[in-house]
Design a protein around this nucleic acid. Structure first.
Lengths: 238, 238
DNA sequence: CTTACGAATATCGTATCGGATATCTGGTGT
DNA sequence: ACACCAGATATCCGATACGATATTCGTAAG
């Protein structure tokens, strides 16, 4: 894998204590992770200035790891740098850019679903099942109260499929898209619809049945339906 | 655009002197560019250690911009970092990884060709034409003498199509793949075949005729033919 | 109200330092 | 001869101080 997806990894706790001793994360990694958390939760507004000095003081570290984190974030498109002006949070994707995200997803994700149907390990299937079940239970209880959490689980579901398809390049490419999409959806208060949960179960059933063709079409329908849901939501007043 | 493709940009000279005064690149950017040039030309072998101190002395800058460049390169997968050990040039892609590159290209590039057929500007068409013509003239003269140059032009041709398709996300995603592929091809002495040049002309004709469907199928055939050519080449002794 | 100038502020990059860790080297014991 | 262990070395990680330069913003003049 070229770049580990630190945003929507399917198992946040997969770094065992034993490994933590052998390879604890660097300070730069920790600053990066905290900034990612803040950014994808919209705790820092789009366009806000991110001064190296201010962030370093806030996190209690020096400028060296802070710069490292910002450079990584810049490479992922979450922040932008302007010469002699500094870093700032990347502007919100416009609806046009959002359409481009869906265009690319629609090229890649049907194939990732088909690949997952062929190659998913039993553990990966269990992971997918638990995410889908968690979303179903949560939505049955109260869909509006778990808005942010459902959006996170939706990203985790798609990331888990990408991770199971056997092609790390596909996983990386989709990971970048999911981050952008996540921020967009939180900002525009785009809920996870009830239909999403049912579509996830359809996709999971096809993958579990080892039916690549059905997984592919289910995923394609899911993405196109999602695009239409969000466009309808954007047309409505906000 | 999220991340400017600094590897196979179609116009290396598009930074006019006027702009250079208004926004000269940072030292980190310059170090990054020089390292990219060295890496994609294989002037630094795969696996070689890249010490921050050594590179800083070599380029006549301090460690700060050198680290910035290495972090960017790491995010693009050209170098890898090991905690407390340092950076080194990323290992060569294995044939399996190479197949995964083609798998992803085959998902995206037919769509980028179709998009270019719909949206390419006259300037973009002229650019594509000049690249295709340059390759044709070069190959007619002596194909083995211009091996490296033809590989570069091939990447530029595909990058120009990606840039013309109207979706920066597609352009970015493909840019990463082209870099990996370029290095792989140079390392394994995989020539640009005569057929490649003719296939490029077919694709260009379909784009120029504003025929998305034909551009899409031509591109798909081109990529699959390329995969088969390289697999045949790998099977042969090296 | 608009424009221009200059001080304050922040960034970019340099230089240097110390602690922590990996790697290499050489010696010792079996 | 080989495995194993300890010390030396090189490098990275991070902190800090400083100068050069660009941006920003308040203020004054037209």
């Amino acid at each position: 894998m070229i770049a580990k997806d630190a945003v929507f990894g399917t198992r946040p706790e997969d770094r065992s204590p034993r490994d933590a001793i052998l390879q604890r994360p660097s300070l730069g990694d920790e600053v990066y992770q905290r900034l990612v958390d803040d950014l994808i939760a919209l705790r820092i507004p789009a366009g806000a200035r991110l001064s190296v000095d201010g962030l370093a003081r806030r996190f209690g570290v020096s400028q060296t790891p802070t710069r490292a984190a910002l450079i990584r974030l810049e490479a992922e498109g979450l922040v932008v740098k302007k010469q002699f002006t500094g870093w700032s949070v990347a502007p919100l994707p416009s609806p046009e850019q959002f359409a481009k995200i869906f265009e690319l997803r629609c090229l890649i994700e049907p194939a990732s679903a088909a690949g997952a149907a062929r190659l998913a390990s039993p553990e990966a299937l269990a992971e997918l099942g638990s995410i889908a079940e968690e979303m179903r239970a949560m939505a049955a209880e109260d869909i509006t109260g778990h808005r942010a959490k459902l959006v996170v689980l939706d990203s985790r579901f798609h990331s888990a499929i990408a991770a199971a398809c056997g092609n790390e390049l596909i996983e990386d490419a989709l990971g970048r898209l999911f981050t952008q999409m996540h921020i967009f959806r939180l900002r525009y208060h785009s809920d996870v619809a009830q239909a999403v949960i049912e579509e996830h179960i359809d996709i999971l059933a096809a993958i579990g049945a080892r039916d690549p063709a059905r997984a592919e079409t289910a995923m394609r329908g899911h993405i196109e339906a999602g695009r239409e849901r969000i466009e309808a939501h954007l047309d409505a007043a906000d």
